[in-house]
Amino acid sequence: MTQQEPASEQSPAAGRAEQGGELPLLLTVQLPDGARFPVRALRREKASPGPAPAVLILPAMGTPARYYRAFAHQLHAEGLTALTVDLRGQGESTPRVTDAAAVEHGYGTIVEHDLVAVVDAIRAELGPEPPLFLLGHSLGGQLGLVHAALGIGRGVDGVALVASGSVWFRAYGRLRGPLLLLGQLFAAAASTLLGRWPGVRLGFGGNQPKGVMRDWARQGRTGRYSATGSSRDYEAALRTLDLPVLAVSVEGDTWAPAPALDHLVGKVPGARVTRIRYSGQEAGGRLDHFAWTRAGGALAKRVAAWAGPGGS
Rank of each mutant, 00 (worst) to 15 (best):
M1W: 08
T2A: 08
E5N: 14
P6W: 05
A7T: 08
S8I: 13
A13E: 14
A13T: 12
A17V: 12
E18G: 14
Q19Y: 13
T28Y: 03
Q30R: 15
G34H: 04
A35N: 13
F37C: 05
V39W: 00
R40F: 04
L42K: 09
R43F: 07
R43Y: 07
R43N: 05
K46G: 12
P49C: 11
A52F: 04
P53F: 02
A60C: 14
M61F: 09
M61S: 14
T63P: 09
P64G: 02
Y67Q: 13
L75H: 00
E78H: 13
G79W: 02
L80S: 05
L83Y: 01
L83S: 03
T84W: 00
D86W: 07
G91W: 03
E92I: 01
S93P: 04
P95M: 04
R96W: 12
D99G: 10
D99M: 08
A100Q: 15
H105W: 15
T109K: 15
V111M: 09
V111H: 02
A117D: 10
V119A: 01
I122Q: 05
I122W: 03
P128W: 05
P130F: 00
P131M: 06
P131Y: 03
G140D: 11
V146G: 08
V146M: 11
A148I: 05
A148L: 11
L150H: 02
I152W: 08
V156E: 11
D157H: 15
V159T: 10
L161E: 01
A163L: 07
G165C: 11
G165A: 11
V167I: 15
A171W: 01
R174S: 14
L175D: 10
L175T: 13
L175K: 14
L179Y: 08
L180H: 09
L180F: 07
G183V: 03
Q184I: 00
A188H: 06
A189H: 07
T192I: 04
L194V: 12
R201F: 05
R201E: 10
R201W: 12
L202A: 00
G203E: 02
F204P: 00
Q208V: 00
K210S: 12
V212M: 14
M213F: 03
R214V: 02
D215R: 10
D215F: 06
W216Y: 09
G223E: 00
Y225N: 07
S226A: 15
A227L: 07
G229R: 12
D233I: 01
A236V: 04
L238R: 00
R239P: 01
R239Y: 06
T240G: 09
D242E: 08
L246P: 01
H263P: 00
V265D: 02
P269T: 10
R272T: 10
R275P: 01
R277F: 10
Y278A: 03
G280N: 11
A283F: 05
L287K: 06
L287F: 07
D288V: 08
W292I: 01
W292T: 02
R294T: 07
A295F: 11
L299F: 02
L299N: 03
A300Q: 07
A300M: 05
R302Y: 04
A304C: 09
W306C: 09
A307D: 07
G310N: 02
G311W: 08
G311N: 11
S312N: 12
